[in-house]
Structure formats: structure tokens, C-alpha cells
Amino acid sequence: MPLNILCCVKRVPMTGGRIVLQADAQAIETRHLGFTISPHEECGVEEAVRLIEQHGGSSTVLTLGPAEAEEQLRDCMALGIDRAILLLAQDEFDGQATAAAILEAIAAERAAGTEYDLIFFGNESADAGGYQVGIRVAHALGRPCATGLKSIALADGGLRCEQEVPGGRDVYQFALPAIVTVKEGLNLPRYPSVPGRMRAKRKPLETRTPVRPAAGVERVRLVVPEGQGTQAEILGHGPDAAPAVVEVLRQAGLV
């Protein structure tokens, strides 16, 4: 059974060792940073590509973000996704508004004859961590949804999924069409190949511009938590430091 799969990803900065904010405390200073997507979402993209390789069909990647987010969409297409949808938004939308914009795009796709059998989300976005966009989309579409998945298999026209819980894995089984939110560890994503990168440049990318509604979770300001960057006590250099380390371990009651 060929599948039609959609993956939703979000462009975020690679913050490195320290987060620096812009003067107005509304956003991270990203001038010297590269960008990526959440590892959870990378695993969603990899799973979609594998499913299409096995079962045939077509895959689409979607993001709501600035024009520069085309970079992340091309990265996903370099891994094997067929086409991309860019929903242009300069400022971050909250969870409700993000879901609404994605739903509008899905409705437009449907009107153009494209129905998705399976939609991948990250369990949570890397930056906002709202834990909600996938579930909101599932409700609006009236489709089953399981979250935080570490294993997905097609079985009898439906899905058999596993979620890690303390002491084991909980198994869910339900029919397609469906929504899943996934976590890193679902698979080990491939690296893009050079031919993959070349092909990605020519793959189709559609752009739409949703309106940003008033935010239900409305940012006042960002704050870097205290306690970042209090220098460590240097116990020594090289192997000679071993006795000082043992002393620290002794104080902790471990030796």
C-alpha cells in the first residue's frame, strides 16, 4: 500500500555552550549560530523516508518559519523527502496558532487532491517545548494520535507503535490515517549524500503566508537562568590530578 506522509519540522538555532539573548530579550542572538531541527523531528523524517522506500508513495516536509527555513526543508529533501511546504512567519507562533497554520495547509493540500495517511511530529519542539502541536492537529482532523514513540511498524493496514515508560514499553495499535509524535532513538538517521543534496536543490517547494493570530501563550520576555558559567575548581592537569579526584569522590562517600 503506497503511503502519503507529511513531516512537520521547526528551524531552531544550534546554541552551543551558552545562550545569549538579543537586547530586547525577545529572542536568542543567532548572528553567529548555525540552524537545525530537533533530533526528534530528524528521526521522524528518517522514518518517513524508510517507510516510503519500503512501501512506495510520497513524502512532504512542512515548516512554519522564516524564509531562511528553506535551508532545513532542503536538508530534509536531501535525505529523501520528495517535496516541501514553507509557511512563512517571521515571529514564532504559539502552539495553538502553529496547529491552525498547519491545518490550513493540510486543508489546501486536500483541496488540491492530496490526503496524508500519516503525519509525523516531534514529541516536542527543541526551543518552545510546547508538547502540543501534533495532538491539536490530530483532534482537528479527528484522527488517532500516539506520542513519544520509539518504534513504529505498519501492521494490518494500521500502526503498531511503542512508547518508552519506566520499566518497559507500552504498545499502541490503531488504524491509518493517523498522527504520530516521535522521539530521538526511533532510528539512527542517515547522513545526506552528495547526489542527495544535488537532487534536493531541484525538488519542489511551495510557499504560503498564514496570518498570525493573537497568542494564547504570549511572550513577555526570555530570561537566561542563573547559575550558568560559574567556573569549576581545577583539580589539576593530566593523570597527576588523580589523587585530588579520589579526595572529591571520598567526600561524596563513593570511595
Partner: peptide
């Protein structure tokens, strides 16, 4: 006040509804 980036950044926000 809520956590972003798994707690590496805080966000002060107005919560409507």
C-alpha cells in the same frame, strides 16, 4: 514562567483563555 530548551532558557509569558 516556563521552560524552553529543556530548561536552558526561561520564558515569562501571559497565559490567556
Amino acid at each position: 514562567t516556563r521552560l524552553r530548551w529543556g530548561g536552558s532558557l526561561l520564558e515569562q509569558a501571559r497565559l490567556h483563555g
